[in-house]
Amino acid sequence: MPLKEINIFRRHGSQYVPDLRKVRLPEIFRGKPVIGHYITPAEGHLAMNLCPTGAVGLLPANPDADHGLYTIDLGKCVFCRECEFALPGKIRFTGDYKMATNVRERLVVVSGGDQPAGLDPGKVRKEIRSFFKHALKLRQVSAGGDNSTEMELNAAGNVNFDMGRYGIEFVASPRHADGIVITGPISENMAEALQICYDAIPTPKIIILAGTDAISSGIFSGSPALNRTFLNHHYVDLYVPGNPPHPLTFINGVLDLIGRL
């Protein structure tokens, strides 16, 4: 090998992240939010009115409490952090990137912040862990995605994150895939191609929605150019929130799903 290449290698050093389960992201990273205990109705309504995607909600008050509990739905949240700026000290986005789950309701963060989060192993389909624990090949379909989630999924396999070390890879042909990763709010113009691609994957197969756009259509919610009927007919195995999701959010979510420690 020529000397120049050796020098490049030497300077490049070792770039891979040794333990993808224990990385700490800087606190400024907009990960899972925490909502304080004491949100007044006025503060809660401020946040609800401010939220551009209707991610802030209010649970009906239970008879014993004097007020209801405010919520943030990570499936709708675009992580703009405006509610935190409006209510500093009451709402805080943390550096916690482990937000993926298999149960849609678990994406909802409730004020007080001690709710169970993450994946519910009891609800993972049995065949997923028996078939895919040691090798999972995925076909990605962008259906109106803005290319940021797509780039983060590419990054999940790059020299830093290298999810290939777990046997998790993106493949070109749906025939070679064990599942589909959907990004984007699912445009009408892409709806048929998405269905065809999904149908071409042999069973058993999984569905992962990556990014807020895919989970709830996010900022594009209500657009007449979307067609999300695909989701009415299929069971979603993993929701990966984020705008876009960080590669670590995706990788940790998939590892939890297939039952890798």
Binding site: G144, S187, G222
Partner: peptide, 11 residues
């Protein structure tokens, strides 16, 4: 092209 159309200008 057109597969990615989300109606941005309309929104």
């Amino acid at each position: 092209l057109g597969y990615q159309h989300r109606g941005v200008e309309h929104l």
